[in-house]
Design a binder for these strands. Structure first.
Length: 287
DNA sequence: CCAATTTGACCTTG
DNA sequence: CAAGGTCAAATTGG
């Protein structure tokens, strides 16, 4: 695994980091300034990262056996079930998030399973993008109580959204979610990005759909990953106004000129640029 | 009636 | 073979 360091993997990781930095930036902006152009710009940057990552992964993962390659003998048993997907763990990049509530990430999730996990006292819930069938969106996520801190939920994202719904078009929240979204108090959350592969399927946390008792209840967000810990700052509680946020803007066009031109502009310096912005906000907020 | 969730069974991987 | 991931029929709610 670690042996293979291909240019593509490096790019992928760098892009993932950039995307996550953008997420931090968006969160910081949300807390540091009133709604406006900076927010929109941050959101667009975020989506650009998402799209780029999705495109990159589409190119990386050949469509060959990627889909449902039923290795199984067709007439096995009596079931009429057409096919089953191989498990994805370990193969795809995953972004892990620990949160005290079900984070809204701009996507509509549909629960498709629940499983008791061996070394965990709580079941794991399985969600996939509601647009899986419409758009073939491969994004999935798993939600589970944290073992160490039962008040935390560990959300793991797999795959990237290809449904173009992220962030703005939708905001169908379930009743349970709306309850959750009513928790207005801003609390600090920790974002710690990095990790080897952490290209999150949609970390701008905000929409989800579920009603299971296992999944929702906290308030603040705490995104945790493995590598760096330098990106820890108090920031906005981001999900409480998710619906207004996402509904207000027209459907985002992933190919808006601002994206492509900004890409060219940012180029190699984007990380430094974002880092500098983050540092500035960090300094400002700690003063 | 339609759509989302629940839940048990099935399938793949290690 | 056990554990984890996914499917889809049944159930439930709007």
């Amino acid at each position: 695994m670690a042996a293979l360091v291909t240019p593509a993997s490096v790019v992928s990781e760098l892009m993932a980091r950039g995307r996550q930095s953008a997420a931090v930036l968006a969160a910081l902006l949300q807390d540091a300034s009133p709604p406006g152009a900076p927010h929109e710009l941050a959101a667009e940057i975020l989506r650009c990262w998402d799209r780029a990552l999705a495109a990159l992964h589409a190119a990386e993962i050949p469509p060959t056996a990627g889909s449902d390659g039923p290795k199984r003998k067709p007439g096995a048993a009596t079931d009429t079930r057409p096919k089953r997907r191989a498990r994805v763990s370990g193969r795809e990049t995953a972004a892990r998030v620990e949160t005290k509530r079900t984070v809204e990430d701009g996507y509509i999730w549909r629960k498709y399973g629940q499983k008791e996990i061996l070394n965990s006292s709580h079941p794991r819930l399985y969600f996939r993008c509601s647009y899986k069938h419409d758009s073939g969106c491969p994004a999935t996520r798993q939600v589970q109580h944290s073992d160490h801190d039962p008040s935390l939920y560990v959300i793991t994202y797999f795959g990237h959204h290809t449904c173009c719904v992220g962030g703005d078009t939708v905001t169908t929240t379930t009743a349970a979610e709306e309850e959750l979204l009513k928790t207005p108090e801003p609390k600090p959350f920790v974002i710690d990005f990095g990790s080897g592969s952490g290209s999150s399927g949609g970390s701008p946390p905000w929409l989800s759909s579920s009603s299971s008792e296992e999944e929702d209840d906290g308030r603040s967000c705490k995104q945790v990953e493995s590598t760096s810990s330098e990106l820890q700052h108090p920031a906005a509680e981001q999900s409480s106004s998710a619906d207004e946020l996402s509904c207000s803007s027209p459907a985002w066009d992933p190919l808006l000129p601002v994206c492509s031109s900004d890409w060219d502009y940012l180029g190699e310096t984007s990380f430094d640029y974002i880092t500098e912005l983050i540092n500035r906000y960090e300094i400002a907020m700690f003063q």
